[in-house]
Nucleic acid binder design. Structure first.
Length: 371
DNA sequence: AACTCGGGGTA
DNA sequence: TACCCAGAGTT
């Protein structure tokens, strides 16, 4: 190994020992904490994860507790965090760990990698952080740091690049210090070698950083940009209950797979296309909503426009127009367990994506004010 | 290799 | 606005 690499490992480790953040999942050495935190941290910032992690561990303190919990409670604990398959995969894996390994996460990379929701990065993170095994844990942070320090122009959006980075990252791990070193690499990316404005002056390895020396720290890493989310106009119904359902609204559970799987939502549908024009007149929109809901067995009458809402996912942008509706025919009932009438109390048990969480809170707040 | 899967922070 | 974030699973 050359001097640039030895310098990097030595100085980074030393810097980390003096600058490591006090994070909830670092307070105790517990492979379950490492596991839960790493799943939550996928594509999610540290500050966002902190309160979720605290609540999650309080609710499900051990692998067994998580394995034995109802899935709805796990989804509810994940509400608002996004990428909800992470929560379902985490619990499925916890059940596997309980059944196959007596509740202890195996100190074995192949077995850890085989668990649901654990890919190359998370397997490396668990093996290194929890068990101090010299495995690379290459995420976006690490690829950015390595791209800059070694001045690598490989496109980090390409799959092949990660393999190269993993080889390099593994080589850099100091003997017996995998846990600290891998966390140091990510800590540097988060605190110093940031995406937009890297703080090179206080950086512990700036002296031999090839990217900075070449004046390329702002152009690295090279990454092809993602295509913009596809816009979708949607019509949603806020259905006000009457009679025994007074004060409640109609909600619907999403299918078992796909976007927001098994989460609850306001009933809504994709607006029919109108010969190139995306927008419809108000009456036509309400008719489309009535007709679409009727085909699902829900007979309702839109009364008028209530509010608009927008929400952007990674690949879709929803523009949602929400209409006040009343139920037309309660005698037919709402078929299946897919629909439910809920008030503010029932809301506390069902898991909603943030878009609908905000709409429901706004609606119930409005009801409390207007009576 | 490309697409699917949330939500929010930040410049 | 645009980009990014302690990525994984599916096709």
């Amino acid at each position: 190994m050359n001097e640039q690499k030895r310098y990097f490992s030595r100085e980074l480790l030393s810097w980390y020992r003096a600058n490591r953040r006090d994070l909830p999942w670092r307070r105790h050495s517990n492979p379950y904490y490492t596991w839960v935190s790493e799943i939550m941290l996928q594509q999610t910032r540290v500050e966002t994860v902190k309160p979720y992690f605290e609540r999650f561990i309080a609710l499900f303190p051990t692998v067994e507790a998580l394995a034995e919990a109802p899935e709805e409670e796990v989804l509810k604990a994940w509400e608002g965090l996004g990428y909800y398959s992470r929560a379902r995969n985490l619990q499925a894996a916890a059940r596997e760990v309980k059944a196959q390994y007596g509740g202890s996460i195996p100190d074995d990379k192949a077995k850890v990698s085989a668990l649901k929701g654990i890919g190359p990065y998370t397997a490396g993170a668990i093996m290194s952080i929890a068990f101090n095994r010299p495995e690379p844990a290459v995420d976006g942070n690490v690829m950015r740091v390595l791209s800059r320090y070694f001045r690598l122009h490989d496109d980090i959006a390409k799959a092949g690049t990660r393999a190269h980075m993993e080889h390099l990252a593994q080589e850099l791990i100091p003997e017996g210090c995998a846990s600290e070193f891998n966390q140091a690499l990510m800590e540097l990316g988060a605190l110093v070698c940031m995406p937009k404005s890297p703080a090179c002056l206080p950086c512990p390895v700036m002296e031999h950083c090839a990217g900075r020396i070449a004046g390329e720290e702002l152009m690295l890493p090279v990454k092809t940009k993602a295509k913009p989310p596809k816009p979708e106009l949607r019509y949603a119904a806020i259905v006000e209950g009457a009679g025994e359902h007074a004060g409640k609204v109609l909600v619907r559970q999403r299918p078992d797979t796909g976007l927001l799987a098994r989460m609850w939502e306001l009933p809504h549908l994709l607006a029919p296309k109108t010969g190139g024009l995306l927008d419809l007149r108000e009456e036509e929109a309400m008719e489309a909503l009535r007709h679409g809901m009727q085909s699902e067995g829900v007979r309702l009458k839109p009364i008028g426009h209530w509010t608009d809402a927008e929400h952007t996912f990674s690949h879709i942008h929803w523009q949602m127009r929400v209409y006040r509706c009343v139920i037309e025919d309660t005698s037919s009932g709402i078929a299946g367990g897919k629909y439910a009438w809920i008030g503010p109390e029932e809301m506390e048990r069902l898991a909603f994506p943030n878009l609908f969480l905000r709409l429901l809170h706004a609606y119930f707040a409005e009801r409390r004010q207007n009576g």
